[in-house]
Design a protein around this nucleic acid. Structure first.
Length: 872
RNA sequence: GGGGAAUUAGCUCAGUUGGCUAGAGCGUUUGGCUGGCAGCCAAAAGGUCACCGGUUCGAGCCCGGUAUUCUCCA
């Protein structure tokens, strides 16, 4: 049974039991500060569990792409070393939102596994929660009794809080769970050791495949559990493990989910899978990470140096590192596997196929960068070794520096040290690492109190901001958040005219008011589906009604830019081609920024063409065409552009300006008609990553100012040139003239200097075989230095003292021929220091050349007479 | 968000406690050697030492700030 059939059967089984099939949400999470990536199938339903939103279907089934690399579920270091941990995986799940509970969940799970998928019943074990006295929770006898009709009691096991009480995070929905484990050892092994003793013991062949979670509580920030009003079922079955079981393999990597990449790696490296444990681990690492990174890029998350992008980079670099060390790759290779990934998964996940080129380019670029990082690190390492031939231990702080500053992996340092017969102080390294983490953690402390609920909420906050900028509102709940010594309040309203930051458009600002008091709203953010108003202070009488007023100027300017962004997007597609995909955008009241996939730099002509097209559309004064409450299918039929990596709800909104030109799925606010934008001007075009370009632009007043500043600039230039007929010609003549005059002047100065050199050289005083020159001149220290070096090349046995003065500042420059320095033990630096006392200054230098500066020019003559005495 | 580092010729990089009028290799140009190419020899061009300010007799080097890039952590 191949992988795609396994997936289809699962979805259809639950569809037949009244479940609605949902698409996988993007793997990269936006609008949730607690989560960077989808790490469980339940993420996209979080708001339902938290009772922030009402589900539109009570029974749902899906296959969700997940990534587990950081936070509570951190499997990254395990991946590759065993045969069943993954960074990216698919989670098959069926869901009940306040509908069915344990009975159905258990019965259906059993039916699907044994009767549909045909897993032998005597290979299955189930676990139920044993209870926890300190939480005040009893054992889950209910689940136990429900399993009894299907499973002999010796294969129903009680499990601890760690294994059988599921929690989303430190706070949030949670509840007891019941796991199904499968024993896929051969018959002989099964007879020798009872499978029941291996459950939850990290045995690679006795594994959990399905977790049925019965959500009944909410964990508060003080650690207490609160009963939820509605109980839910949340199940998760590891797709890759299921495939392994159904394909009779003993490793996930032997299934058709991973095998194609292993095959390709064998071809590329010339190493056979199974021959060498290190190489095997490496191939598994690469096969796994390839999937994680490619899906993330398809969702719009590029490798970068912070946040989610950094996690992606770390995963990719781990793959490169294993390939480099154990598979012998010295050139980019991960990107070569992307085509195999697309072949394997492109059908179930069309975003991969659509963005294959981009994924390859981005990975290849990152591979180049990292291979370079490695070679810099190797160089630093070699230099260190060469500089400390006596030592035999790499100190921890150096290993940490290599890692922290140069990104050089410590296990490579260890390996290289070993090859040279050196040790490495790993404890010191860990200490450096711990310090680093501590600093970061201390800087990121955010203390959020529990929500204070004033009203039982009915439904989502109603957004009024498409029509109104002012409305009567009341507070539903609020909480206090302390971060970096500042206290802010997060406030949720029953309805609001404030737009919450989303889809690149910044959140609205404004204030709440009642009884003449104003309470500013400094920002509006979105966390999941919740609109959160950020307020520095809240009224004492918070339970009353308020008038919410949006900062209108800021909003209107932002709308100009947002609509212009849509026009820009469409214009780019028209001018550059349909490969243009939005990769990100930022829209505020000042400007707009638009990132998109494109293979090369835009030419000046292309930029101009885009600008012209957008401005044409502005002048056409196209009116906004808005469709709310469309289904995804209807929107697609209208030809609206959807974005990869964007999470869309049940109902979507389409914003069109001339349906044939620009039509996008978008929740943002827009101008009523394009004419309001006035003018559009592109300010810059640049690269931000392999295959991704960024355009920044301004509209309206800002665009006018931008153009005006260019005109002013031109005007000023003309004015400086005295308004010639042809400014360009005149300017180029001026520049030419300047160039030739500079050259002439330099030549003249050289001649002058040469004259001075000749003059001084012919007035040498010979004192005891030393050619003494002492002169007082008007020049600065730099010129004197020049003069000194010129004379040095012309006069042997030179002892030169220049007493110079420029703009009232006196100075001394001394030059002594090298042979005199040696023979007579002279030191210009020491001499100049003593002479400098006459001009009330100080100085120094080398034995043959030195300079000094001072404040009393009257002493310069004294300097010359004294200097002569030095050699006579 | 918090650390660490880098920025010097077209490219890759040296540059010591502040003191040869900033160097190397590669590349470029010119000339020479060889039947031609590959190559070798010789010479030349090429620098606002990222930017702004400070300390100093003197700053590529020290100090402060800015920008960009790399990198680690959250």
């Amino acid at each position: 049974m191949n992988a795609s059939k396994v997936r289809k059967i699962f979805l259809n089984f639950f569809k037949d039991k009244g479940h609605k099939i949902y698409r996988s949400a993007p793997m990269v999470v936006k609008n949730d500060p607690t989560l960077m990536f989808t790490n469980a199938g339940m993420n996209q339903f979080k708001d339902i569990f938290l009772d922030n939103t009402t589900p539109s279907h009570l029974r749902v089934v899906n296959s969700q792409k997940c990534l587990r690399v950081s936070g509570k579920h951190n499997d990254l270091d395990e991946v590759g070393h065993d045969t069943y941990h993954h960074t990216m995986f698919e989670m098959l799940g069926n869901w009940s939102f306040g509908d069915y509970f344990k009975k159905e969940a258990i019965a259906w799970a059993w039916e699907l596994l044994t009767e549909i998928y045909g897993i032998e019943k005597d290979r299955l074990y189930v676990t139920v929660f044993e209870g926890s006295p300190e939480e005040g929770l009893e054992a889950d006898h209910e689940a136990y009794d429900l399993w009894k009709p299907f499973v002999p009691e010796e294969r129903i096991l009680f499990g601890s809080k760690k294994d059988n009480f599921w929690e989303m995070g430190d706070t949030g929905p949670c509840g007891p769970c019941s796991e199904i484990h499968v024993d896929i050892r051969d018959d002989k092994a099964r007879k020798t050791i009872d499978g029941a003793s291996l459950v939850n013991k990290d045995h690679p062949l006795v594994i959990e495949i399905w977790n049925l979670v019965f959500i009944a509580f909410n964990r508060l920030s003080d650690g207490k559990l609160k009963n939820l009003p509605a109980r839910h079922v949340d199940t998760g079955m590891g797709f890759e493990r299921l495939c392994m079981v159904l394909q009779n393999k003993q490793s996930n990597y032997d299934t058709d989910v991973f095998r194609p990449y292993i095959e390709k790696l064998q071809l590329l490296s010339g190493i056979v899978y199974g021959d060498n444990p290190d190489a095997d681990v490496s191939m598994r690492v690469v096969a796994d990470h390839l999937r994680a990174v490619s899906f993330a890029i398809a969702d719009g998350e590029l490798p970068s140096n912070n946040k989610a992008g950094y996690v992606i980079r770390r995963i990719l670099r781990r793959a490169i590192r294993y390939g480099y060390t154990f598979l012998g790759f010295r050139e980019p290779f991960v990107n070569l596997l992307v085509e195999d990934l697309v072949t394997q998964m492109g059908e179930a996940f069309p975003e991969l196929r659509a963005q294959q080129d981009l994924i390859m380019k981005v990975i290849a670029e990152e591979e180049h960068t990292f291979l370079r990082t490695l070679s810099v690190g190797i160089q630093k390492f070699e230099q260190y070794i060469a500089a400390q031939p006596d030592k035999k231990t790499i100190p921890g702080d150096f290993a940490f520096e290599l890692f922290d500053t140069y990104g050089f992996p410590v296990d490579l340092t260890t390996l290289m040290a070993k090859e040279k017969g050196w040790n490495i102080d790993l404890k010191g390294f860990e200490a450096g690492m711990a310090g680093q983490k501590e600093r970061s953690r201390a800087a990121a402390v955010i203390d959020a109190a529990d929500w204070v609920e004033l009203k039982k909420r009915g439904d989502d906050t109603v957004f009024l901001g498409y029509e109104k900028l002012e409305a009567e509102v009341s507070v539903v709940k609020y909480r206090k958040v302390d971060a970096k010594g500042k206290t802010l309040y997060q406030v949720v309203l029953d309805q609001t005219p404030f737009y919450a930051e989303s889809g690149g458009q910044v959140g609205d600002r404004g204030f709440l008011t009642n009884n003449g008091e104003r309470y500013p709203v400094v920002d509006t953010r979105k966390e999941n589906n919740l609109s959160i108003h950020i307020m520095p202070k809240i009224p004492d009488a918070i339970s009353g009604t308020f008038t919410a007023v949006v900062d209108q100027t800021k909003r209107l300017l932002t709308e100009n830019n947002h609509t212009a962004t849509h026009l820009l997007h469409a214009a780019l597609k028209t001018v550059l081609g349909s490969h243009v995909q939005q990769k990100g955008s930022l829209v505020d009241d000042q400007r707009l920024r638009f990132d998109f996939s494109h293979f090369g730099k835009m030419t000046d002509e292309e930029i101009l063409a885009v600008e012209r097209l957008v401005n044409e559309k502005i002048r056409e004064n196209i009116t906004l065409e808005e469709h709310r409450e469309l289904s995804m299918e209807e929107a697609e039929q209208m030809g609206a552009t959807a974005l990869f990596g964007e999470k869309y709800g049940e109902k979507v909104r389409v914003v069109a300006f001339d349906n044939a030109f620009s039509s996008e799925l978008c929740g943002g606010t827009h101008v009523k008609a394009t004419g309001q934008i006035g003018l559009f001007a592109i300010v810059s075009e640049s690269a931000i990553a392999a295959g991704i370009r960024r355009v920044e632009a301004v509209t309206g007043r800002a665009a006018e100012e931008f153009v005006q500043s260019k005109i002013d600039e031109l005007h000023s230039i003309k004015e400086l040139l005295k308004h010639p007929k042809d400014s360009i010609k005149t300017l180029s003549q001026v520049l030419e003239l300047n160039e030739s005059m500079k050259k002439e002047l330099a030549a003249m100065q050289q001649r002058q200097l040469q004259q001075m050199v000749d003059h001084l050289a012919s007035n040498v005083e010979s004192i005891h075989g030393v050619n003494y020159i002492g002169t007082r001149v008007s020049m600065d220290a730099k010129a004197a230095k020049d003069l000194a070096f010129k004379l040095k090349g012309k006069v042997d046995n030179l002892f030169l003292v220049i007493a110079h003065e420029s703009e009232g500042k006196p100075g001394i420059t001394i030059m002594i021929a090298e042979n005199l320095v040696e023979q007579k033990g002279l030191h210009a630096g020491n001499l100049v220091r003593s002479l400098a006392t006459h001009i009330k200054g100080g100085g120094g230098g080398q034995p043959f050349f030195a300079s000094a500066g001072g404040s009393d020019a009257d002493g310069l003559d004294k300097v010359l007479t004294e200097s002569k005495k030095l050699i006579s």
